[in-house]
Design a protein around this nucleic acid. Structure first.
Lengths: 242, 242
DNA sequence: AAATTACATTGAGCCGCGTCAATAAACTGC
DNA sequence: GCAGTTTATTGACGCGGCTCAATGTAATTT
C-alpha cells in the first residue's frame, strides 16, 4: 500500500534508490544500508534558478542530486565568474566546503531538482564504522580532483572548438551512463554558462557550435543538441595544433 | 648521542618534524602520534628531475614533501601537457590516485627532494580510530579541490599578466608561510613549465615578466625573482577588463 | 495576441597571444 | 677552460577569439 507524503524532510532509502549504482557503488549489508538511510534526508524540490548553497555558507552536508541539473560557480572579488561544473542526477556536490567549513562556490539549480542531504559529520562517523563507505567517500573526493585537473588541461591547452567537442562528449557519456541517449539531448545551460565553464565568450561558443554543425558533426538548435558523429567529435577534440 | 643512518626507509617522526604545523595540523596525543609515525617512512632523496610517480602507476601511498620542490603534470593521448601544480615542503601529493587506484599524473622533482611516504590503506585504517586524523585527510582532499577550482578561474578568466601576478603572489605567500622571504626567492621551474601551468606559451611568460619588471613591480633575472610591490601585483591581478 | 525580456546568431574589426626566428645567456660534462 | 645543450629574451607577424553591434528567436508576462 502506498500513500502520498509531503516531499520535504522525507526519509530517503538509498537501498531502493535507482541511482544507487551511480551515487553509492558500495557493497553494504542490509543493516549497514539502513544506517546510511538513517542519516540521509530528501529535501524539497529546488526550483529552476534556486540556490542550494552559496559561497560563504557554513558547510554542513554533501548533497546527492536525485533528479535535475545544477551548476557550480565561483565568483571572485573583482566580479569574475567561473562555472566550475555542471552536475546531474547521481552526482554529489558540496565537497569544496570541507576544507574550510564554508562553501567556496555557489550551487544553482538549472532545472527543477530534488536532492538528498548527507550531513557530513554523521557521514564521517559512519565511515569510521563502515570501511567500504569511508573508501567510497575518498574515491568521490579524489574523482573530483581528477575531474578538475582534466578541466585545467582543457582550459590550458585546447582551442575553442576542441573545448566544445570535449564538453559535448563529456555530456554525452554522462547521459549514456544514466540510460539516456548519448546522441540526442537538451542542453540545460545557456551559451554564456557554457562559455564560462570553457573559458570562452558566449559568441565564441555560438560560433563554434555553428561550425561543428557546418562540419556535419552535430545538429544544434537552441538547447536541443544532436550528435551526428561521435568519432568525428573525438577526432576534432584530439587534433593537436602541431 | 646521534649516529648517522642511511636515509632510505628511515622511520620518520612526525612528532618531531618541523613541518608538522603545515603538513599535519592536528591535535593528537603522544601515543596517537607514535601510531602515525609507525606508518610513515622517509624515502631516499629524489634527485632533480627524478620521478616520484607516473601516470598509470598503481596508487598505494600519499607523499608528504619534506624538503624540495615538485611539479605534477598530466599528459593526454595527443601529447598535450598540463602542469597541474607546483608543490613545496609540507604539502601532500598523490591524491589523484585514490579514485581509480592508479595515479593520473606524473610527479617530478624540480630540485633534490626528500619525501615521506604514507601508505594509504593504513592511513585510512588509522583514520577510523583517530577522528581528528580522518577529518584532516578530508580537509586536505577538499583543499586540493578548492585549489584546482581557483586555477580554473585563473585559466578561464584572466589575461596573461594577471595570471603571472596571481602565480607570483601565490608562491610568495607559500614561501612566507614557510618562513622564507615573501619578496625574494628563486623560481624552481622553467618558463615553459610556468607557461604550461598558466595556459600560456613560454614567450608570453617571458614577455609578461619583462613587462612587470618595466612596471617596477618585480625584478627578475633568470630564476631569481624579487617582488618590489606586493600591493601593485595584487592590483594588477585584480583589474577587470570591463 | 501583443509586449517584454532573455537568449542566440552572425558580422566586422581589432588586439592579445601564439608562432617563428634570431640571439644571448646560463648550465653541464669533459 | 671549452663545446654542447638547455633556457631565456626579444622582435616581426599572423590568427583565434574578444568586442561591439545588429538582428533574430524563444520564453514569459500582460
Amino acid at each position: 500500500m502506498h500513500k502520498l507524503v509531503p516531499n520535504n524532510s522525507l526519509k530517503t532509502a538509498c537501498s531502493t534508490c535507482n541511482l544507487r549504482k551511480l551515487c553509492l557503488p558500495v557493497n553494504l549489508s542490509h543493516i549497514e544500508m539502513e544506517r546510511l538511510d538513517d542519516l540521509i534526508t530528501r529535501k524539497g524540490v529546488y526550483r529552476h534558478g534556486s540556490i542550494l548553497y552559496r559561497s560563504g555558507d557554513k558547510f554542513q552536508a554533501l548533497y546527492a542530486i536525485r533528479t535535475g541539473f545544477f551548476k557550480t560557480q565561483i565568483l571572485n572579488e573583482d566580479g569574475r565568474e567561473q562555472v566550475t561544473g555542471f552536475q546531474m542526477a547521481g552526482e554529489i556536490i558540496g565537497m569544496d566546503g570541507i576544507s574550510s567549513d564554508a562553501h567556496t562556490c555557489d550551487a544553482v539549480a538549472l532545472e527543477d531538482s530534488e536532492i538528498c542531504e548527507i550531513p557530513f559529520n554523521r557521514l564521517e562517523d559512519l565511515g569510521r564504522e563502515l570501511p567500504p563507505l569511508q573508501r567510497h567517500l575518498h574515491r568521490i573526493l579524489s574523482r573530483e580532483i581528477v575531474r578538475d585537473q582534466n578541466i585545467m588541461l582543457l582550459l590550458g591547452s585546447m582551442r575553442a572548438e576542441e573545448r566544445l567537442a570535449a564538453f559535448l562528449l563529456n555530456l554525452s557519456q554522462r547521459f549514456a551512463v544514466r540510460g539516456y541517449s548519448p546522441t540526442s539531448f537538451q542542453l540545460r545551460m545557456t551559451r554564456q554558462e557554457i562559455g564560462s565553464y570553457l573559458g570562452l565568450k558566449l559568441e565564441t561558443v555560438s560560433r563554434a557550435l555553428s561550425h561543428l554543425q557546418e562540419s556535419r558533426l552535430i545538429n544544434v538548435r537552441n538547447r536541443s543538441l544532436e550528435i551526428l558523429c561521435l568519432s568525428g567529435l573525438q577526432a576534432c577534440m584530439g587534433k593537436r595544433v602541431r
